[in-house]
């Protein structure tokens, strides 16, 4: 039995509300014996289930095509055959499976929609974010939208190089957390070719309106990065002052056991 009153009493005299109001962390949950009360246990279980489902949903090209309103879309698949292989072999998710061919439009910008660790993020935000980007790219020629399954960020290097693009934008599903399972990240790489490193990319993270970054806001940020990269002829740490470079896990927020440079969310 829980000794705590319900969570709804935050405005009432509940002294635990002080704790709950101070942080997003799951504090003051109460206990049932030495375990969690059933309601709290089920809340946690649901958050994990939603995140798991986001990881394991298959990318559905029709959902993305429907949102893109007839724009040309090219589908590709990484060398990772299925989700289990994708999760265990990031190296395979970074290169194309044999047999996929791409046109060579020699456009300035290649846009790659990649499932990453949350196909759900691509379903929910991929088309709308792409549209917002295209609205701002009047100055640039843009190739067909490439829809990549079982893809890591670096797959964009091979795709961008094959398309003959000057720059590739990879819009990819980020690793679902308990509070957000539908975040899309955007990785910009100038002069894409296989072998580019994470330090040669810039990233705009957490696109997921209404809770995270909005489409217009994210597209504006990307446009500024694109202009900076064109001027510099490079992306990555050199572009740092012009916009956000790779955030979180790639630098000082290195989680326990992970050195700088690894990107466990999408890498």
């Amino acid at each position: 039995m829980s000794t705590l009153p319900g969570r709804s009493g935050d405005n009432g005299p509940d002294p635990w509300a002080v704790l709950r109001g101070a942080t997003r962390a799951r504090v003051a949950l109460g206990r049932a014996g030495d375990g969690l009360p059933t309601a709290r246990e089920l809340e946690f279980r649901l958050a994990h289930a939603v995140a798991r489902d986001a990881v394991h949903t298959a990318l559905d090209p029709e959902v993305v095509r429907a949102g893109l309103d007839g724009l040309p879309v090219v589908e590709v698949h990484s060398a990772a055959a299925d989700r289990a292989e994708y999760l265990q072999r990031p190296d395979l998710g970074r290169r194309l499976a044999p047999g996929w061919s791409l046109p060579r439009p020699e456009a300035d910008v290649a846009i790659v929609l990649a499932d990453g660790l949350s196909p759900r993020a691509v379903h929910e935000h991929g088309a709308a974010l792409t549209t917002a980007l295209l609205d701002r790219l009047a100055d640039w020629s843009v190739g067909p939208v490439v829809l990549a399954a079982q893809a890591r960020v670096a797959l964009g290097d091979e795709i961008g190089a094959a398309l003959g693009a000057r720059v590739v934008l990879v819009l990819i599903g980020e690793r679902p957390g308990l509070s957000a399972a539908d975040s899309l990240g955007i990785y910009l790489t100038w002069a894409p070719r296989p072998g580019r490193t994470d330090s040669e990319r810039n990233c705009v993270s957490n696109v997921r309106p209404p809770h995270g970054l909005g489409y217009a806001e994210a597209a504006d940020l990307v446009l500024r990065l694109l202009e900076g990269a064109r001027e510099l002829g490079a992306s990555g740490v050199a572009l740092k002052d012009e916009g956000p470079s790779l955030p979180s896990e790639s630098g000082h927020r290195s989680p326990p056991g992970i050195p700088a440079g690894a990107d466990p969310r999408t890498g």
Partner: peptide, 18 residues
């Protein structure tokens, strides 16, 4: 151990205090 098994900074699940 972290509050409610949910590390809201590092985004992973560890054990909870309980």
């Amino acid at each position: 151990a972290v509050p409610g098994s949910d590390d809201v900074m590092l985004h992973y699940q560890s054990l909870s205090f309980s």
